[in-house]
Each structure stands twice: as structure tokens, then as C-alpha cells.
């Protein structure tokens, strides 16, 4: 009995360390197969270039001024899309033999889940860096302070971390990695396209505005734009953080619950 009592206080530390070890495993994979890095940057590059030139002239008159408006939102969109990779990768992971090994070891049940989400957060940071780099190369200019730009990036990464939990839950519930695509599509498309990422809220039909205004992607894009351009942020930051927290509170516990039941 005494052994159990002694180990309890150290438990959160052990769980976190095991989670970090498993996140390291994810990062090693990037190092060993550079094509994964290509995967991570292909979508961001495509998104920035495509949306800037596709909608630029139509929405804002010229693509250069549209880029200033659209880039922060495209960054958010990229991260939401990337978070769905968590679903596919986690689902595939659960089926692999190595998970049996983890489960037969005295490793915390939640460690693989934490490792997956943390590892994906790093991957998302890489994707975000690519979006910003392509944006700057095309002529995006931030008028906010460097600290404010970093804060905007931090806010977006925090949000993507919360969406990873939703991805993990989908990955746990899905029957096969192939079936993930459809589910992810239904979640991601209304979130990202049903927002003011591409078109300012005021130019949208009234019924759509109702959704767009509450959409976390809108809130986050507004906050990111304001921070990057040095404009007054209003409630944007606060709302984004609330959404981030809400998504974690709603999706992380069921993900852990479903995961533990499977184990």
C-alpha cells in the first residue's frame, strides 16, 4: 500500500514526461522522413497563394490589400485543417502493434493521447510558420508590434491545440483511417469557410452572419488581424481564449474517456 501512496504525488509529472516522450517520437518521424515536412508546408503554401489570388480582386479590388486582410484568417484555417490530421494519425496509431506495447507497460493511459496532441502542436507551429513566411514573401506587412504578432500566433496555436482534442476524439471514434476524411470535412468546412476569413462579416447574407459571428474561427481571425495590424482588439482575444477553453473542456474529457475504455 505504501508504495501506491508514495507514487501518487509524482503521477502528474510522470504522465507529462511520458506524454513528452511520445511527442518526441512524433517529431523524430518528421526528422526521418522529410516528406512529412513537405506535407506540413504544402497545404499552407497552397492556401495562402490560392485564396489571395482567387478572391483578392473580387473581394478587395486588388490582391495586395486583400492579402493584408486574408492572411491571419488563412493561418487560422490552415491550423484547423491541420488539426484534423490528428484524427487520421491517431486512428492509425491505435491500430498499430506499438500501442499494444504501450498498453502492456506501466505507462499512464492518457500519455499516448497527450503525446499525440503535443506532437501535433509542434507540427502545427511549423505549418503556421510556413503560412507567415509565404505571406511576408507575397507582401503581407504587420503594423502591430512584434510582441503583438507573436501573441496572435500564440493565440492561434493555443486554439489549434484545443481543436486537436476534437481531432483525437474523432480519431478514437472512427472505424478506419479512411473514414476520417468525411467526418473531418463536415467539421472543418463550416468552421473555416463559414467564417469571416475570406469575406468581411458585413458583406454576408443576414442568416449566415448569425453563425459567422459566433464561429470561433471568426473570433480568432478578428483577434489575429487586430493584433497583427496594431488595431484595437476589443473582445477578440478574450473570446478566442474562451472558445479555446470551451473546446478543450467539451472534447478533451470524452476523448480521454473513450480512449481509456478502449484500453
Amino acid at each position: 500500500m505504501s508504495e501506491i501512496v508514495l507514487r501518487r504525488p509524482a503521477r502528474p509529472v510522470r504522465v507529462l514526461r511520458q506524454g513528452l516522450t511520445l511527442a518526441w517520437r512524433g517529431l523524430l518521424k518528421i526528422r526521418h522522413s522529410p516528406d512529412q515536412l513537405l506535407d506540413l508546408s504544402l497545404m499552407p503554401v497552397t492556401f495562402v497563394v490560392l485564396f489571395t489570388f482567387l478572391f483578392g480582386n473580387a473581394v478587395a479590388g486588388d490582391w495586395h490589400s486583400y492579402l493584408q486582410f486574408v492572411l491571419p484568417g488563412v493561418a487560422v484555417q490552415t491550423l484547423v485543417f491541420a488539426s484534423m490530421n490528428t484524427a487520421v494519425a491517431f486512428n492509425a496509431d491505435l491500430r498499430s502493434g506499438i500501442f499494444d506495447r504501450f498498453r502492456s507497460l506501466p505507462v499512464a493511459r492518457s500519455a499516448p493521447l497527450i503525446g499525440r496532441v503535443l506532437g501535433d502542436a509542434v507540427r502545427n507551429a511549423i505549418s503556421l510558420a510556413v503560412v507567415m513566411a509565404v505571406g511576408f514573401a507575397l507582401g503581407f506587412r504587420a503594423h502591430g508590434s512584434p510582441a503583438a504578432v507573436l501573441a496572435a500566433c500564440g493565440l492561434m496555436l493555443l486554439f489549434s491545440l484545443s481543436v486537436c482534442w476534437l481531432g483525437a476524439l474523432i480519431g478514437l471514434l472512427g472505424r478506419s483511417p479512411e473514414s476520417m476524411g468525411g467526418i473531418a470535412f463536415v467539421v472543418v468546412v463550416p468552421l473555416t469557410f463559414g467564417s469571416n476569413v475570406f469575406v468581411p462579416t458585413g458583406k454576408l447574407p443576414g442568416w449566415l452572419q448569425t453563425w459567422v459571428k459566433v464561429n470561433p474561427v471568426t473570433q480568432l481571425s478578428d483577434a489575429a488581424r487586430a493584433l497583427m495590424q496594431g488595431l484595437p482588439v476589443g473582445h477578440g482575444v478574450q473570446n478566442s481564449l474562451l472558445w479555446t477553453l470551451a473546446i478543450v473542456v467539451v472534447f478533451a474529457p470524452p476523448a480521454v474517456f473513450v480512449y481509456k475504455r478502449r484500453v
Binding site: 526521418h32 502493434g97 506499438i98
Partner: peptide, 8 residues
């Protein structure tokens, strides 16, 4: 089934 990570 081999329980090691193929990529590592």
C-alpha cells in the same frame, strides 16, 4: 505483429 515504430 511487430510492435515497434517503423519510421524510427
Amino acid at each position: 505483429y511487430t510492435a515497434v515504430d517503423e519510421d524510427l
